[in-house]
């Protein structure tokens, strides 16, 4: 594995892991005792930043989901989430995120296996890894433009296929739909999967497959009993990261569909812009709902990982 791959990949790959307590002195607040002023100076900006710009806003959103305009406790905001429109918006967001995460994970895994284990020329491997670094960050507005230019109503592929006698829009395809969004999201989901899973695949020792084959296992049996079970925690972790990644995306969907698809992020965006009702309580409730869903995905991952990982050190 070349050095540059290691750089991007390792920083990505460590992202979904559970928090490991560091070695050494770890007692609740015990470390504060022997702290020196210079050391304090080094960590205070970080902690201040974390509290002000990550923890406090989240906390604020969670709390205001339960407050009315006068500042009194209420469940009205939460109840508002169960209106038909908002339920539908959560549902379409979950559908697109889950589908693009699952398909992205499967396709990304297949491509990663092909380039890492398929005996393809080595330049393919390095090109794919570099491209993945680029494409996984090529999200948002420019990505929407690219897909509009490709399979939009006037896109190159649409026009080309029409010329060949196949009108995909008459056939039921629409870029501004569930499948259109999923197809677009895959453009950053697949590369992200490749980047995260590649180090894990490299971690599969060659001897494992060799040992399996001398024991009479077919390639399929190796993957069924050894390869996939070993990768399983990583696959799950990546799946939950891909889900959260798609679930929080605003720009791609907004630039692609405007308001025509009722994604929950776009609902929230409209709430904040005041384009819609401008009910801050409902906005907070929407945000809380989003936090709950992405946190839920991560909790499922942590639980399954803890169970699957007995055999890992």
């Amino acid at each position: 594995m070349s050095n540059n791959d290691a750089n991007t990949a390792s920083l990505m790959a460590r992202v979904p892991g559970p928090v490991q307590p560091g070695p050494g002195r770890f007692s609740p607040l015990g470390f504060i005792a022997g702290i020196r002023p210079t050391e304090l100076l080094a960590v205070v900006p970080f902690i201040l930043f974390a509290v002000l710009f990550l923890i406090a806003p989240t906390f604020y959103v969670v709390v205001s989901a339960f407050l009315d305009r006068a500042g009194n406790f209420t469940l009205a905001n939460i109840a508002g989430l169960f209106s038909e429109q908002i339920r539908a918006s959560f549902w379409i967001s979950i559908r697109v995120s889950a589908t693009s995460a699952i398909l992205g994970a499967i396709l990304g895994l297949l491509i990663a296996l092909a380039i890492l284990r398929g005996r393809l020329p080595s330049w393919i491997r390095s090109t794919v890894m570099t491209f993945s670094g680029v494409a996984s960050n090529f999200a948002g507005i420019p990505l929407a433009f690219a897909f509009l230019a490709t399979v939009g109503r006037l896109g190159l592929i649409t026009v080309l296929l029409k010329f060949l006698g196949l009108d995909i829009y008459r056939g039921g395809f629409n870029l501004l739909s569930f499948w259109g969004l999923t197809l677009t999201y895959l453009y950053f989901q697949i590369p992200l999967m490749i980047l995260i899973i590649a180090p894990a695949i490299d971690g599969l020792k060659k001897e494992w497959s060799e040992a399996a084959s001398t024991l009479g296992a077919s390639t399929w049996q190796f993957w069924r009993y050894v390869g996939l079970p070993v990768l399983w925690p990583n696959l799950l972790g990546t799946l939950s990261l891909l889900f959260a990644n798609a679930f929080g995306a605003v720009a791609t969907a907004y630039a692609l569909t405007g308001m025509s698809i009722n994604m929950v992020t776009i609902q929230l965006y409209a709430q904040i812009r005041g384009d819609a009702l401008g009910d801050p309580g409902l906005g907070a409730a929407l945000a809380l709902g989003m936090i709950v869903i992405t946190a839920f995905a991560n909790v499922i991952y942590l639980v399954v990982r803890a169970r699957a990982e007995r055999w890992l050190k």
Binding site: P21, N245, G248, M290
Partner: peptide, 29 residues
């Protein structure tokens, strides 16, 4: 300060779990 590590790691994971639009909603308020 290895004792702070769990906290720091948790904080650095937050932006991946909490959607950016939720954070900015909090900021604006």
């Amino acid at each position: 300060l290895p004792g702070l590590r769990p906290f720091i790691e948790f904080v650095t994971l937050l932006p991946l779990i909490i959607p950016a639009i939720v954070l900015v909603f909090g900021y604006i308020r």
